[in-house]
Design a protein around this nucleic acid. Structure first.
Lengths: 202, 202
DNA sequence: GTTGAATGTTCTCCTTTTGTTCTCTATCCT
DNA sequence: AGGATAGAGAACAAAAGGAGAACATTCAAC
């Protein structure tokens, strides 16, 4: 296990290299951590090399290389630690009985598929252009579900589903600047119900 | 089996390590559990080591290592079929060279942890109350990143990060009815950068 | 080449943090 | 009552790591 100092040095080196394309000098590492001792950084860097996280080219200026190994040494798990609940203005509160997030059971399931969303029609439901949605195959839906529907066997659309009187169906976007569609049920074929949504920021 | 105290200590240690990247000191564990006795924590930690859940490096500061759970093997693929792109008013278009969505590489990675979001402060960024976010541990951020920040070592918050003149930092909610915070950089500690967001509708 | 600034290396000295050990108490449960 | 569990707090020693100096090398400019 790394000490706090080693951890900070290692993180700094990784950031620096990805930002600048070459390794930092000891003085730069020190400055990056708010100290001024090159000697101290030398010790830290030696410790990191001993831990196998970096490789040193002794004597060379900026002679630090990252050891390319899976990651930090840990294999990425199928689960992520779920630290708790974050609410503005409060410390992170642990969630009892729920310490890990199992992505598999969280997102996977029978008859599911994914779609990439294009457009802003569901923006007020928090589904943005470029998001990925996971859909459970189903030809029926509950009132209020968000569904993937095929209109006239032609156009596909992601909308909120409502039954209307007279066997009509409303497909409502979540975007004030767009109009809901109200259609005869025969023209609408439900293809699936939205079960989850995800987005990456990389 | 673990005693309640041991359980809490163990959970705290796991969360701390995934959040900070290094092990907590006994005093920090105590504070995390709302007590103040390092001596008592020392006993708990010894018991956890005896139970084989952690490994201790005697005498070392923060000398706690998590024992890797066996059964690691490889992460199961965890993929979903990616049918294509859905845009209102068009048929679903296949995305060339991208027929499956690999959730593992999409969401998992080293140094990541999850948090459940409470509140509407990021609603205009499409992050709603109850969503789960995945955060990459980092103590630095780029301008415009969404970060988990600790203010005065006390309050945690999820906000958009901007550097301001004079070494000040702006933490901006994505909600027109809330005000951005502008704080001295010394009061703000970045804990991680948002890498993804997910939501389920079950 | 020569040269000089940049940079790695080694040491010594110190401060602060932190593990360790002990003693005393306070609960809780059977 | 008696044991298991755990908190408070004090005292001590070791570890981590910063400061700063002195020296050795590297490396790019000349």
């Amino acid at each position: 296990m790394l000490t706090p100092g080693q951890r900070k040095v290692f993180d700094f080196i990784k950031d620096y290299i990805s930002r600048e394309g070459f390794a930092p000098s000891l003085a730069e590492i020190a400055a990056g951590l708010g100290t001024s001792s090159r000697g101290s950084m030398h010790k830290q860097v030696q410790a990191l090399a001993a831990a196998g996280l970096i490789r040193l080219l002794p004597g060379r200026k900026r002679g630090i290389e990252l050891v390319e190994d899976g990651a930090d040494g840990d294999t990425p798990p199928a689960t992520l630690p779920l630290l708790g609940r974050i609410a503005a203005g409060q410390p992170i509160q642990a969630i009892p009985d729920e310490q890990t997030l199992n992505l598999t059971e969280f997102l996977l399931g029978p008859n599911r598929f994914a779609l990439r969303v294009q457009g802003d029609s569901m923006i007020e439901a928090g589904i943005l252009d470029g998001d990925t949605v996971i859909v459970r195959r189903s030809d029926t839906a509950e009132d209020g579900d968000i569904v993937v529907a095929l209109i006239d066997n032609e156009e596909a659309t992601l909308k909120r589903f409502h039954r209307r009187v007279g066997g009509r169906i409303e497909l409502a976007p979540e975007n004030r600047s767009l109009r809901p569609l109200v259609l005869d049920a025969r023209r609408v074929r439900i293809q699936g119900v939205l079960v989850s949504q995800l987005r990456t920021y990389d």
